[in-house]
Amino acid sequence: MKLTLNGQAFEADGPLTVQDLLRRIGREGVPCAVEVNQSLVPHRQRAERTLGEGDRIEVVTLVGGG
């Protein structure tokens, strides 16, 4: 399954949930927020949200800002 993760191509074997993806990239348990195709996936729904071919995923965090 071809995904786009933070703007870069990412190949993954499906089926895959958002939680699975975060585990695979070492972000499970680390505070972050996830958007799939420009829609927030609330952190409590990560285990239920399955990813599909071509999904564009953003994994974001908080950084210094004004």
């Binding site: 933070n6 927020a33 004004g66």
Partner: peptide
């Protein structure tokens, strides 16, 4: 304090 939301540096 204010903060910004940005991509995780995954790579």
């Amino acid at each position: 304090v204010t903060v910004a939301v940005r991509r995780e540096r995954l790579f």
